[in-house]
Design a protein around this nucleic acid. Structure first.
Length: 933
RNA sequence: AGGCGUGUAGCUCAGCUGGUUAGAGCGCUACCUUGACAUGGUAGAGGUCGUUGGUUCGAGUCCAAUCACGCCUACCA
């Protein structure tokens, strides 16, 4: 074996081996074993792996591997979604390079082109997921636009439409003027930006004065339908019902009264632009029956924008064709000239932008399809309330309820070409026919060939198909063995940012169409951020690529990666500086296992995961430690008898019994933590057992037996324990660090008596055997450790070379300790490097330490600096005396003795006695040293 | 405005249903290349658990108030 752990050398070959051997597939397709199933949240097909994916996958793979080893019939189902807008944008950008638009190609050719792109580039992320060691069943990979998944989408649309839960309506939507499509509320990101508030004078038509209205979007003036005041506002009673001469136009609009207006804010007058503002639209709805409103063009619903958000032909000629922001400037200037601009002030406002295009979204009046969500939400709320679905951590259910109880109808149509086309047809009178195909529609509605039908041009929101993912990937609506075996799935693992987008919608759809929840548990994990807690983003230049952490990257390449393709070029310098500061030497190749162990350790209950490079370094060191421990074990057992032959005697010593007991405790702990999704604590238990118990103590203790004059049976027992505990440890750690454990296990397992072990993946997960935990053994080793540590501390304090054998004396100690001293003498002399171990006559000049009731003394004639030693003893005494005072006060408190459980009181008493004994010994030593002075 | 969350060692975080002396990793200090490992070993320094009250025999842990920070949802033109 190599002296150092090199992930590159081992990680490349195992994945192919596992995948080609079919280990990732479910073992059964029936109910002969308990099923465990996780659906991979389908990544965007245009996507590349980011830290969130890597984190998320580490958790899912750990769960999957754990359950597989536990004997569950396990399926982790992969796939990608078609990402309507994102994918269409990618291909349109390609076309742009050829100076073409999608319209030049036409719908059919364009879609062909997208499929071609998907064929070539759509597997980037699935290739990267493999690098993470993810044990996904690739033979079942799905894509939201696959035929069977599309059939599910169509069925759901048609059924919901027939039930009246999908409808078409003309309403205000969030319109992305760059992408020319409606987007849902969730795809709009509002952020505070610096803007201005313009206060404008709106003259009354009778010339008697004016009102002041303020706006952040002056261009919408051209679409105004009214000015609203509060009905009880004394100041404006007289003008309610009067007319306003709308500036820069030849229109007049009424003053109306509505409760929506806050009289305290601004002038108390609000301009109402119903076709371009959600609140104004509501106001308009309440007043649209009024004659003055009805008299306006289109009943007051005046649309002033083209699909590009340029001014359309309904506005005065001089503004037509202007972009909205250009129009804004012109209108402000014209108002100024006309003396109608009262004032302009700086104003912070929330600006809504499309999450894909980053363009300012406009409320825009269009025909769209909607899902009526409230009836679907009700059962979905119940499913969480009554525990059929459990959120972990539980608190996220509050967020879920909050949203579900205030839910809005969902706009599902998108003005795109790439996606599931809406199965609706229109006749010349705009009557709607919904069905599987034109033919089916004609048959169903008895439409003759003389009636021409035209299909709806729009496609469905990608999330509409994602909402069906747990059902559709298992074959629903067909009654398949997969669906029968694995639905409902076991757990959904995802970040909290996606609860509304996806989790809630899956629950609604699952319940609606299968009557069953789609998953029984939802594990919500935190979001990965950089070491300073900042969200990782391209524009901030703080993105880490998981593949770079695995393979390593030099600093120049990293800088280039972070600074290329930036929206704002002036950021580049800052990002370069920052990057060179954080990663002066680039990033080492840490390997997949180190990355996974890091993620597992970070998977605590918090919701921000700060990723610091120091952490992964530490876990790479852990892997190296495990590697070298195995190396030592292999060196100790190769060509040696490890007690596999039952006929030769095998003897286990204290160390063996101890490490076996600690292993059982660790196994219990790890399983318990994994059951509760505490990957951090499970990882910590594995880490501590490996490093602090197995390596620091057991390997050292084993050397005493193997290199000493122990019997053949004892040596056999030690070798057998070395290899068996290691073998179990590898299985224990395998779900988190699959590669290194497989690599080591392949070497080690035969010596542990495992024959024909093809892979660690399918070995049973270690189960604790409580009967092998012996409290006396644990206590004995604790005492042995205390003894050794005592000697080491004296060495360190007096600067005695660690290798120099020392004479050690002892005195006192209870009967058990005296017998331990006798029995475990070889461990003590070897690990503490003791030259001679004899009773102490208490007169020699010596430094002392305590091991339980026993005093350890190291004669150090002439070496001791009495002043320093007295100071040290004093410090220790102070600590003990403090403790004694606190505890005896407690014990003298009758209410404590009366009310606290007896066990607690007993413990305190015992502790008090121990402290008392220690103080006595320390005082004696103090006097001895003092007398030397 | 409403909802959620966080505040423990220089940094990143554990601390489960309240019970001895509050832990880990990284960083720091000193010593050590000992035959698994310097991606290592040994020893050590470092915390009045945001603040103030309360419940309790006992509070980092439960309750209330308060301060600071963060996130989400909805926004006032």
């Amino acid at each position: 074996m190599d002296k150092t752990y090199d992930p590159k050398a081992i990680e490349t070959r195992w994945y192919d081996y596992w995948e080609s051997a079919g280990y990732f597939r479910p073992q059964h397709m029936d109910d002969s074993a308990e099923p465990f199933c996780i659906m991979l949240p389908p990544p965007n097909v245009t996507g590349t792996l980011h830290m969130g994916h890597a984190f998320n996958n580490t958790i899912m793979d750990s769960l999957t591997r754990y359950h597989r080893m536990r004997g569950y019939n396990t399926l982790w189902q992969p796939g990608t979604d078609h990402a309507g807008i994102a994918t269409q944008m990618v291909v349109e950008r390609q076309l742009q390079g050829e100076n073409k638009s999608r319209h030049d190609l036409g719908r059919e050719k364009f879609i062909e082109r997208v499929w071609e792109w998907k064929q070539e580039s759509g597997n980037t992320i699935t290739t990267q997921l493999r690098r993470l060691g993810s044990s996904l069943d690739w033979s079942r990979e799905r894509f939201t636009l696959n035929e069977d998944l599309s059939a599910a989408v169509q069925k759901v649309f048609i059924d919901l439409y027939n039930e009246g839960l999908i409808y078409r309506g003309k309403r205000l939507v969030n319109w992305d003027p760059v992408l020319h499509t409606a987007i849902s509320d969730l795809e709009v990101l509002s952020e505070e930006e610096q803007g201005q508030l313009w206060h404008m004078k709106y003259p009354l038509a009778d010339g008697s004065g004016h009102v002041i209205v303020a706006t952040t979007r002056p261009e919408t003036l051209l679409g105004d339908a009214a000015v609203a005041v509060h009905p009880d506002d004394e100041r404006y009673q007289s003008i309610i019902g009067q007319s306003i001469r709308l500036p820069l136009t030849d229109r007049t609009i009424p003053v109306i009264a509505d409760n929506y207006v806050d009289p305290e804010f601004g002038s108390g007058c609000v301009k109402i632009t119903p076709a371009h503002d959600f609140n104004d639209y509501e106001v308009w709805n309440r007043h649209s029956h009024e004659a003055a409103i009805q008299a306006l063009d289109n009943g007051g619903l005046i649309n002033i924008f083209t699909i590009d958000a340029a001014m359309n032909d309904s506005v005065p000629e001089q503004y037509r064709g202007l972009d909205r922001f250009e129009a804004r400037k012109r209108i402000v200037a014209d108002l100024e000239t006309a003396g109608l601009l009262e004032k302009t002030e700086a104003h912070k406002l929330m600006v809504p932008r499309g999450d894909r295009s980053n363009a300012v979204v406009e409320p825009y009046l269009t025909n769209q399809w909607y899902v009526k969500v409230a009836p679907l939400a009700e059962p979905a709320i119940q499913a969480v309330e009554d525990g059929r679905i459990r959120f972990v951590p539980e608190n996220w259910s509050k967020t879920y309820f909050e949203w579900m109880r205030n839910i809005q109808d969902w706009c599902i149509s998108r003005q795109l070409w790439w996606g599931h086309r809406i199965p609706a047809w229109y006749d010349a009178e705009e009557n709607i026919y919904v069905g599987e195909s034109e033919q089916a529609v004609r048959a169903q509605y008895k439409l003759g060939d003389d009636i021409s039908l035209r299909r709806d041009e729009d496609v469905l929101d990608t999330w509409f198909s994602s909402a069906l993912w747990p059902m559709s990937t298992l074959g629903w609506p067909q009654d398949t063995p997969e669906f029968r075996t694995f639905y409902p799935t076991s757990v959904l693992v995802t970040g909290f940012d996606i609860i509304f987008f996806w989790v809630a919608r899956m629950i609604m759809m699952g319940l609606k169409f299968t009557g069953e929840v789609p998953f029984r548990e939802v594990y919500i994990h935190g979001l990965v951020r950089d070491s300073e807690g900042q969200k990782m983003s391209k524009s901030k230049g703080n993105v880490l690529d998981p593949i770079d952490l695995i393979d390593g990257i030099d600093i120049d390449t990293l800088v280039k990666k972070r600074t290329s393709g930036l929206m704002q070029l002036q950021q580049a310098d800052k990002i370069e500086k920052q990057t060179r500061k954080h990663f002066p030497d680039g990033i080492n190749a840490y390997g997949t296992d180190s990355l996974r162990f890091t993620f597992a350790s970070l998977a605590g209950p918090g919701r921000d995961i700060k990723f610091d490079i120091g952490r992964i370094e530490g876990y790479r060191n852990y892997c190296n430690k495990l590697w070298n421990a195995s190396r030592y074990v292999m060196m100790s057992i190769e060509d040696q008898d490890t007690g596999l032959d039952e006929s030769s005697p095998v003897e286990l010593g204290l160390a063996e019994h101890w490490i076996i007991a600690r292993l059982q405790q660790t196994e219990r702990e790890v399983a318990q933590q994994l059951e509760h999704y505490r990957f951090d604590l499970a990882a910590q238990a594995i880490y501590e057992f490996t490093w602090d118990e197995y390596c620091d103590w057991y390997l050292e203790l084993s050397k005493v037996t193997l290199t000493g004059d122990s019997s053949a049976a004892a040596q056999r027992g030690t070798r057998r324990t070395l290899v068996r505990v290691l073998e179990a440890l590898l299985r224990l750690a395998h779900p988190i660090i699959p590669y290194i454990t497989e690599e080591l296990w392949q070497r080690v397992a035969p010596y542990a008596g495992i024959k024909d072990g093809e892979t660690i993946m399918l070995q049973p997960y270690p189960q604790a055997d409580e009967s092998r935990i012996d409290a006396t053994v644990l206590a004995a080793v604790e005492w042995v450790k205390a003894f050794i540590l005592g000697v080491r501390r004296i060495r360190a304090e007096f600067n005695i070379a660690p290798g120099k054998p020392l004479p050690v004396r002892f005195t006192g100690g209870n009967a058990q300790e005296q017998s331990w001293l006798d029995e475990y003498r070889p461990y003590l002399t070897s690990l503490a490097k003791i030259e001679s171990l004899e009773p102490w006559n208490e007169s020699d000049e010596a430094a002392t330490a305590l091991a339980g009731d026993m005093t350890i003394a190291i004669p150090l004639a002439g070496l001791i600096d009495p002043q320093a030693e007295l100071a040290r003893l004093q410090k220790e005494l102070d600590k003990y005396r403090n403790d004694r005072q606190r505890i005896s006060a407690k014990l003298e408190n009758s209410s404590f003795v009366d009310k606290a459980p007896a066990a607690v009181v007993d413990k305190e008493r015992q502790r008090c006695n121990e402290i008392e004994a220690a103080i006595v010994k320390l005082e004696q030593q103090y006097e001895r040293i003092e007398s030397l002075n």
